[in-house]
Amino acid sequence: MDAHQQDTANPFGMDEDCENCPALCETREQVVHGYGDVGADFVFVGERPGPGADQTGVPFTGDSDSEAFLSVLRRLGLCASPADSDEPELHNAFLTYLTRCRDPERPPTDEEIRTCEPYLNAEVRMINPEIIVPVGERALAEIATEYTTTPAEEFDIAEHHGEPIRGRGFELVPMVPPGDASDERTQTFVESFSELMASDYRQTKGRRSR
């Protein structure tokens, strides 16, 4: 699988007509694969497409929660487009989800997350980022299970928000979804992540902890 960096949307050419989860095929508008810079140091992983992404086909776009998220990326210098852009210009950032399809009535099942796991694993393997940012509690639980030796239940998104966590091969920085966060909590993340970006974070890769 090769990356096509001229294509920021689904740059790895993943199946856009995936039918591995029949129930979701009936409720989704489209499959939403990853989007952004395939050479990124930072990969942001949400739980599932929001209502906006289900329409646009681009992760973290198309609705008010997405605008709040992209506003944070703008403040960090990772996004050069307005927060309401449906095709944001990203620098050093890649956006993706645990699952690629949306049911408007419920979150994804454990089975659906397992079924989609090869897509996420392939993106992470191809990009080989320095930092993975789980956005939300479910993303934190799944990413922590995959990339740390600590039981996922020991992590709490509110407690570990913006706090670097060294894992197996990648450092994790959990993020409360900006659409659900107070201004103060959002500011905390921006300040913490800005400090990390200004540090020698590339030297931490491969260290094992937690």
Rank of each mutant, 00 (worst) to 15 (best):
A3F: 11
H4W: 09
D7A: 15
T8E: 05
A9W: 12
A9G: 08
N10I: 12
F12R: 03
F12N: 02
M14T: 03
D15L: 01
E16S: 12
E19I: 05
E19N: 09
C21H: 10
P22T: 11
P22D: 12
A23S: 12
A23L: 07
L24D: 13
L24P: 04
C25L: 05
E26I: 10
T27M: 06
T27C: 08
R28E: 11
E29P: 02
Q30Y: 02
Q30G: 08
V31C: 02
H33C: 04
H33Q: 11
A40V: 03
F42N: 04
V43D: 01
V45F: 02
V45A: 03
G46S: 09
G46I: 05
E47W: 05
P49W: 07
G50Q: 07
A53L: 11
Q55A: 11
Q55I: 08
T56E: 10
F60T: 06
F60A: 09
F60Q: 14
T61K: 01
T61M: 05
G62N: 03
G62W: 01
D63M: 00
E67Y: 12
F69S: 13
G77M: 11
C79Q: 07
S81H: 11
S81I: 04
D84G: 05
E89W: 08
E89I: 08
L90H: 01
L90I: 07
L90W: 01
F94G: 09
T96L: 07
T99M: 07
R100G: 04
R102I: 15
R102A: 06
P104Y: 05
R106M: 05
P107M: 14
T109G: 13
D110L: 12
E111T: 07
E112F: 14
E117M: 12
Y119W: 10
A122N: 09
E123P: 04
P129Y: 00
P129S: 01
E130I: 10
V133N: 05
P134T: 08
V135N: 06
G136H: 03
E137T: 05
R138D: 09
L140P: 00
L140I: 10
L140F: 04
E142N: 09
E142F: 11
A144N: 07
T148P: 00
T148I: 02
T148K: 00
P151A: 12
E153P: 02
E154T: 10
F155N: 00
A158F: 13
E159A: 14
H160V: 13
H161Y: 04
G162V: 04
G162N: 02
E163F: 04
P164R: 00
I165C: 01
G167Q: 02
R168I: 13
R168K: 14
G169R: 00
G169D: 06
L172E: 01
P174F: 03
D180H: 10
D180G: 04
S182W: 13
E184A: 15
R185T: 10
T186C: 14
T186W: 07
Q187G: 10
Q187H: 14
E191C: 14
F193K: 10
M197A: 08
A198Q: 14
D200A: 04
Y201H: 01
Y201F: 13
R202P: 00
Q203R: 05
T204N: 06
R207G: 03
S209A: 08
